[in-house]
Simulated assay, not measured.
Amino acid sequence: MMDLAASGVTVYTTCRSSIGYNEQSHLRRLLEIARWADEAGYRGGLIYSDNTSIDSLMAAQAAIAGTEAFVPLVAIQPVDRSPFTLARAVSSLAHLYGRRVDINFVSGGYSRDLTVQGDTVAHDARYDRLTEYATIVKELLTGGMVNFAGEYYKFRRARLTSPVPPELFPLSYVSGSSPASLSAGEALGLSQLSFPLVPEDFVSPDIRKNRFGSGISVGIIAREDSAEAWRIAHKRFPATQEGAERMKLLLSAAVSSWQPQLAAVPIPDEAPGQTYWLVPFRYHHTFCPYLVGNYDEVAQAVKTYLDGGIRTFVLDIPEEPDDLWHARTAVERAVAAMDR
């Protein structure tokens, strides 16, 4: 098995949110996917944060306690907890378990979630708030004394009694695809996570990229035979009128820029020879596009992203452990072939 980290490439999977699951089955499913990721040699998995999911840090603790090496990539929304509370939680997990928690800083969410919590901050201003938030978190995690007077946060002589050991310091990302998110990532010196355009469009010189690195959330269905990959894809993600209507509702409630951008990508639902597939997103099955095909077809698309500067991949929720292994095969082929 190739050492992807040694090649500078980081791969996560995604753990299912608690929508539609009772408490017992959600814990079982969370640990099942986390253990699959461990066995397949992934760094870890993304854990969502929204008003319909269980608390992302509590899910992270459960995943850590039930695995050997899994690293939770925890989505953090500033409205949900103060920067001190987050820093203390990350530090506590490091000291209790000797394990790392990675952070995906998220500026907003759905309009209904923001309304429930009384958050009326405008889109670009939310990234200003996120920049303050992540700045404070980073300083606290390194053991510094924080004196901060910003527009959104004020701290005086704040310090963690147990900062995170350097070897367990989290990888952190800023989520988003807007100019405001890109500016926030660069101001913080963090990589940016977004949802990808068609591979060939992403590498265009007209696309501004974060100079500290980029990552994408994408699904992969790869098999030895392309026809088998597409058979699985169509079975899992049918194009239905009901799904299209749900997507319309989602877009009407969106306060992020990536959802309308992805919905507007001008490719048909079915295009022979096209590996990039938007049906899972367009019909509200999941929140990202997919790459579908045989190993070499998917590897070529992944290589295009790699050559365009992508170094982090957050893969969609697997239905079975083989999904992770098949995806890894395509990613390894792409890494082996990428321009260096």
Score class of each variant (00 low, 15 high):
4 L>R: 04
8 G>H: 07
10 T>C: 04
10 T>Y: 11
10 T>V: 15
11 V>F: 11
11 V>G: 08
12 Y>K: 03
12 Y>H: 05
12 Y>G: 01
13 T>I: 04
14 T>F: 03
15 C>E: 06
15 C>T: 14
16 R>V: 15
17 S>L: 12
18 S>V: 08
18 S>K: 14
19 I>M: 14
20 G>C: 07
20 G>I: 13
22 N>A: 09
22 N>I: 08
22 N>V: 08
23 E>I: 06
25 S>Q: 14
26 H>S: 07
26 H>K: 09
26 H>G: 01
26 H>V: 09
26 H>D: 08
27 L>C: 05
27 L>P: 04
27 L>F: 06
27 L>I: 11
28 R>F: 03
29 R>E: 14
29 R>G: 00
30 L>E: 02
30 L>G: 00
31 L>H: 07
31 L>R: 10
34 A>I: 00
34 A>Q: 01
34 A>D: 02
34 A>C: 08
36 W>K: 06
37 A>T: 10
37 A>L: 02
37 A>E: 00
37 A>I: 03
38 D>N: 09
39 E>V: 13
40 A>H: 09
40 A>F: 02
44 G>P: 00
45 G>C: 00
45 G>K: 02
45 G>A: 13
45 G>I: 01
46 L>H: 09
46 L>D: 01
49 S>C: 10
50 D>P: 07
50 D>F: 15
53 S>E: 06
54 I>A: 12
56 S>T: 05
57 L>C: 07
59 A>T: 13
59 A>E: 05
60 A>L: 00
60 A>T: 02
60 A>Q: 03
62 A>E: 02
62 A>K: 03
63 A>C: 10
64 I>L: 15
64 I>R: 13
64 I>G: 14
66 G>P: 03
67 T>H: 10
67 T>C: 06
68 E>C: 06
68 E>R: 14
69 A>D: 14
70 F>H: 12
71 V>K: 15
73 L>Y: 11
73 L>N: 06
74 V>R: 13
74 V>F: 14
75 A>L: 12
75 A>I: 02
76 I>N: 05
79 V>S: 06
79 V>D: 15
80 D>W: 06
82 S>R: 12
85 T>F: 03
86 L>E: 04
86 L>M: 06
87 A>Q: 05
87 A>Y: 10
87 A>D: 03
88 R>P: 01
88 R>F: 10
89 A>F: 12
89 A>N: 09
90 V>L: 08
91 S>G: 01
91 S>K: 08
91 S>E: 08
91 S>L: 09
92 S>M: 07
92 S>Y: 02
92 S>R: 00
94 A>M: 10
94 A>I: 13
94 A>G: 15
94 A>L: 04
96 L>N: 11
97 Y>T: 03
98 G>L: 08
98 G>T: 09
99 R>L: 04
102 D>K: 02
104 N>L: 15
104 N>G: 01
104 N>C: 03
104 N>V: 00
105 F>N: 02
106 V>W: 01
106 V>A: 12
106 V>D: 09
108 G>S: 10
108 G>T: 06
109 G>P: 13
111 S>I: 12
111 S>H: 03
112 R>Y: 06
112 R>W: 12
113 D>S: 11
114 L>V: 05
115 T>Q: 13
117 Q>F: 15
117 Q>C: 08
117 Q>N: 07
118 G>Y: 12
118 G>S: 09
119 D>N: 15
119 D>T: 02
120 T>A: 12
120 T>C: 07
120 T>W: 09
121 V>P: 04
121 V>G: 06
